[in-house]
Simulated assay, not measured.
Amino acid sequence: MAEINLFLIFLGSIGFDLLIGDPRFLIHPVQIIGFYIKKICDYLINNFGENKEILFWGGFIVSISTIGISFSLGKLIELSFVQSRTHFFGGLLIFFGLSSCIATKGLISSVKEIAELVERKEINDQNKRKIKAKVQRIVSRDVSSSSIKHLLRSSTESLTENSVDGIFGPLFWIFIGIVFMKFSMFLPGPLSLGLSYKAISTLDSMIGYKYDYFRYLGFFSAKIEDIFTFVPSRLVLITLPLVGSKVNEYIPIIKKSYLDGKKYDSPNAGISEAIFAYISGIKLGGKSKYKNEIIEKPIINATGDNCSGEKIKLICQLILRLQFLWIIIFILIFFMISSLI
C-alpha cells in the first residue's frame, strides 16, 4: 500500500511543479547542496589550488559526500513515511522533496521570458542588457559580449540540455525508486534517488568543467553525472519524436540525432540537444566563450534554422508533451508490475 501512496504523491508532486514551481517560502535543496559544495571547493582551491592531486581527490570526497548525504536524508524520510501510522508528515516531506527535484516550470518559465523579451521589446542597449542578465542566469558560458542571435542559441542549448538534467533525469530515477520500494522499503526509494540525482546534477553544474582547477576538482562529478544521465538522455532520444510533428521520420531523425550528438565530448548533452534540434528544425552548436577561452562546439543539424523565440516556445511545448507521455508510460508500467507481484 505504501508504494501506491508514494506513486500518488509522485504524480501530485509533478502537478504541483507544473502549476506552482518552487515555493519561495521553502528553502530549495539545491541551495543547501550548492552552499555545501561551494564552501568545500573554495577551501580546496584557495589552499591547494596548485596541487592537482589534492584537487583530484578532494573533488572525489566532495562528490561522494554530497551524494551520500542527499541519499541518506531521502532514505530516512522514506523509512519514516513507511513506518508511520498516519503517513501525513512523511508524505508531506516526500511531496515537497519530489517536487523540488523536478524543474519543469522554473526551466520553461525562465527561457520563455527570454523569448518574449526578444520578440516583444525593441532591442536597445537597456533591453539587451536585461536579456543578457537573464540568459547568464541559466548558462555557464560568458554572454557579456553576445549578440541577440547568440543569446537565443545559448538559451536554446541550455533548455535542451537541462530538460534532461532538470526534468527527465529526475523523473526517471524517482520512478525507479518507486518500483524498487515495491520489493523492499530498504531499497533506494523515490526521494533518496531523486535527491541523489539532484545532488549529482548540481555537482556537475557547479564544478564539472574542463578548465582551470575544475579539470581536476570536478572530474568525478562530471563522470558520475555522465553515468546517471546516460539512460534518461537515450530515453528522451527515442521518445521525443513520438510527440513531435515528424513521427513519420522516426528512424532517420534518431539516427541523425545520435550521430550529431556523439560529436560532443559529453555522452549525453549532445544527444539531448540534437534530438530537440532535429524535431524543432533548428541549428545548434558553434563558438561560445567560457571564462577567457573560446570553445567551438560541433554543429548540430547544419541545415536547420537559426534559434528564435518561436522555436524556443515550440521546444517548451515538446517538453510538456513528452513529460505527459512519460507519465502515461510510468502509470502503465507501475500497474503492470503491480499486477505481476
Rank of each mutant, 00 (worst) to 15 (best):
R141A: 00
I167A: 07
I123S: 13
D165V: 05
I123W: 09
E157L: 05
T160R: 10
S140L: 09
S154K: 03
K130R: 15
D125K: 15
K128Q: 14
G166K: 03
S145I: 06
R141H: 00
R129S: 15
S110N: 09
R137D: 11
L159E: 09
I148M: 00
T156G: 11
L159N: 10
A133D: 11
N162V: 08
I108V: 11
K112V: 08
V143G: 02
I114A: 02
I108T: 07
I167P: 09
K128P: 11
K134I: 10
Q136V: 04
K112D: 11
I148P: 00
S144V: 03
K112S: 12
G166Y: 02
I108K: 06
V118Y: 07
S158M: 08
L151S: 01
R153W: 00
V164P: 10
S155N: 05
T160N: 12
L151P: 04
K134Q: 13
E122T: 15
S146E: 06
N127T: 10
R141S: 00
I131L: 02
V118W: 06
S158P: 08
S109I: 06
R141L: 00
S147W: 01
I114R: 01
K132P: 07
S109W: 05
S146G: 06
L152Y: 05
I123R: 12
R129Y: 12
K134C: 10
A133N: 12
R153V: 01
N124I: 12
D142L: 01
V118T: 11
D142R: 00
L159I: 10
R141N: 00
S110I: 05
E113P: 07
S154H: 03
L117D: 13
D125Q: 15
V143L: 02
I131Y: 02
S154R: 04
V135R: 04
K130P: 08
A115E: 11
V164A: 12
S154D: 05
S155H: 03
D142M: 01
V111I: 11
S147K: 01
S163W: 03
I148E: 00
S140M: 11
E113Q: 13
R153A: 02
S158Q: 09
V135Q: 05
I108L: 08
I138K: 10
N162S: 14
A133C: 06
K121R: 14
K128G: 11
R129T: 14
I114V: 11
I114M: 03
H150I: 12
V135M: 05
